[in-house]
């Protein structure tokens, strides 16, 4: 049995309490949400926090709802809830696509959306999905709340711009009618992290791409996004050729690292191919041709 190094454990009763506990235990304390990323790292002793602040009792951080023209997702929302959410699925099929291929049911039942983003794993699926849809996140600390563009949240592998005593509380996704979205992933086996994955959202103006968002993961895309490809696609005809061209541009700006999932050239190829496929499917959905 793999066992973690000793640590203190505290259970937060409110967001304020969690922030207070984080402040009290200092920078070597960690929030634990679903624990599906943090606990394995602790068992392997790759992470040895002094203290765990458990936020699983903060049920008021678990919700999915529409307010005005935004979809709001509480940080403690479980993967399974996002997968099952009719309202999220209606506006953003990309989440359903992605959640279907994230981990396995056991992990999805407990792993959280906030934990996924804060883990900042370079192969996290939701980071790409949220980058594609142009989400922002709300962080709360001792000095109040601030909103951060999700494309500014990640400071590097396993690193976010959050302060040690800041809590991510909410994710906000702007809703604009007439769009379509999709997520495409290649994995070695079900439940595996992606070899590469791409998410796309497309708004059409007739047969022209009015606006597009592209997110990429596991391929070394800065901030999990492909802004150059988004720009190139804007105003272009919504055709396979345009999508493939966008895929090529996206891949050019990636810095994939070789590992046991594949060599860099292969991951770059997947960036092209999966971006193209995600755009194609998002467009079909925008046209109402596909569920």
């Amino acid at each position: 049995m793999q066992v973690p190094a000793p640590f203190a454990y505290e259970r937060a009763t409110s967001v304020e309490h969690a922030i207070e506990l984080l402040s009290r235990h200092g920078p070597e304390a960690r929030v634990v949400a679903g624990g599906h990323s943090l606990i394995p790292m602790m068992k392997l002793r790759l992470a040895q926090p002094d203290a765990l602040i458990d936020i699983n009792n903060l049920s008021d951080l678990s919700y999915i709802r529409v307010e005005g023209d935004q979809l709001l997702i509480g940080a403690l929302t479980r993967h399974a809830d996002l997968l099952d959410s009719a309202v999220a699925g209606e506006h953003f099929p990309i989440f359903r696509d992605a959640e279907q291929v994230i981990a396995d049911p056991v992990v999805r039942n407990f792993g959280t959306v906030g934990g996924s983003l804060c883990q900042a794993d370079p192969a996290e699926d939701l980071s790409a999905a949220f980058a594609a849809v142009g989400a922002s996140v709300v962080a709360r600390g001792p000095n109040g709340s601030r909103t951060i563009d999700v494309r500014q949240l990640h400071a590097g592998p396993y690193e976010t711009v959050l302060e040690p005593n800041e809590l991510l509380v909410e994710i906000r996704v702007p809703i604009r009618p007439g769009g379509g979205s999709a997520y495409e992933k290649v994995e070695r086996r079900v439940g595996d992290y992606p070899v590469a994955a791409a998410g796309a959202v497309v708004w059409l103006d007739g047969d022209t791409v009015a606006e597009a968002g592209i997110g990429l993961t596991a391929v070394g895309a800065e901030h999990f996004a492909a802004p150059e490809a988004e720009t190139a696609l804007r105003g272009r005809p919504a055709t396979d050729d345009s999508f493939a061209e966008a895929g090529r541009i996206a891949a050019q700006h990636c810095h994939p690292q070789p590992d046991q999932r594949g060599p860099a050239e292969y991951k770059r190829q997947l960036a092209v191919e999966l971006t193209t496929r995600a755009l194609r499917r998002a467009t079909a959905r925008a046209r109402g041709q596909e569920a």
Binding site: V186, R188, V195, R261, G262, P263, Y266, Q269
Partner: peptide, 8 residues
């Protein structure tokens, strides 16, 4: 014959 091996 992982996806990477097949493609390569």
């Amino acid at each position: 014959l992982s996806p990477a091996a097949v493609w390569s």
